[in-house]
Design a protein around this nucleic acid. Structure first.
Lengths: 183, 183
DNA sequence: TAGTTTGTTAAAAATTTATTTAACGTTTTT
DNA sequence: AAAAACGTTAAATAAATTTTTAACAAACTA
């Protein structure tokens, strides 16, 4: 191989590494460990990878790669693929950032809505009982205050649910188009 | 104080605690520590708090409260207020979840866009140089492939920036109204 | 000016999280 | 059927984060 070809290859690697670094660094937002972030970013430039390839590429242990890959599968940033002829499992990175965005945030926001709405519901029931049962005006006033505060907050959770729905259905892209061309 | 009033007060605390627990638990999404999450959730039901009140309420050290409060101020979930007559700093929690949502996600997404767009720009420059300089067809093809992949990904980052803009401007609420009544 | 009060910074301790090594179970190959 | 390959689980280690204690600096009080 010629000297300049060697150099070009290195430049390509350098270019990729810049992007890999940036992706990995911003992936803390997705709640993954630095190694899972590095793994995803690395896979972003690969067609597919096996656990052993990941291990040698990132110079980490196999269980570590196994854990990272599972976490990435959970948020659907990595999928298992069938490769005929190979006993090794092969994985591919989701390269469409729109899909990653949708899956991740919808998952998280839904969890937030579910968890908080349930708590609010229970709390409001308790507060209503206090309002009904108590004869002490100050206590009733306080219970009402909190009840109203919780009622008010439901507006937000309902909105968040609507947001999730509009992302899932793709309706949001009618409001905010993806760009010059279609998907 | 009567026995039943005592009981009612406990019920109110119980109701609040349910919501406090739920809010705190889902706040990992906002990248804060569990104590900062607990602190915010506690403050959500308070008018205002001083560091000493936080310390006694959460039974934690003052520096810990100081750190948590600073973190919460960073993402604008807590603001400092002026209380005349008191030397102690007083803080209030942002109780409008819409505002918290806007500030937090816009901040995060903008960081993501900025960081990745910069890396992409640099990487694409490198790749163009390879394409121009290299005489090895395979290398050129590879460089082109990555260049196109990066170009494609810009669509997403542009969209994310549009999303941020529509949240900041409030335009998103034309598409997804906040609920029955106005803000 | 000396003594408090208040909040922060710095160093140390404690806790949690991430990673590795070792062991295991399953499947495949010979 | 024995050996090898592959992936996961479990226990141990390492690393990072969080929290505390202690020391400090600034602002106020007497």
């Amino acid at each position: 191989m010629s000297e300049s070809t060697e150099k070009s290859k290195m430049k390509i690697e350098e270019a990729k590494d810049k992007v890999i670094g940036a992706i990995a660094e911003t992936m803390d937002l997705y709640g993954v460990t630095p190694s899972a972030a590095n793994l995803y970013a690395t896979m972003y430039f690969k067609d597919q990878m096996t656990l052993d390839e990941m291990r040698s590429e990132l110079e980490m242990s196999k269980p570590s790669m196994s854990t990272s890959v599972r976490k990435l599968q959970e948020i659907e940033m990595v999928k298992k693929t069938f490769t005929r002829g190979s006993r090794k499992h092969t994985y591919i990175a989701e390269k469409n950032f729109f899909r990653s965005f949708m899956v991740f945030y919808c998952q998280m926001w839904e969890r937030e809505v579910k968890m908080n709405m349930e708590a609010i519901k229970e709390a409001q029931e308790d507060l209503i009982n206090v309002i009904k049962e108590s004869s002490e005006p100050d206590v009733v006033t306080e219970a009402k205050k909190y009840y109203d505060q919780l009622e008010e907050s439901k507006t937000y959770y309902n909105w968040l649910e609507d947001l999730v729905a509009s992302i899932r259905s793709g309706k949001i892209f009618e409001f905010l188009p993806k760009g010059d061309e279609q998907e």
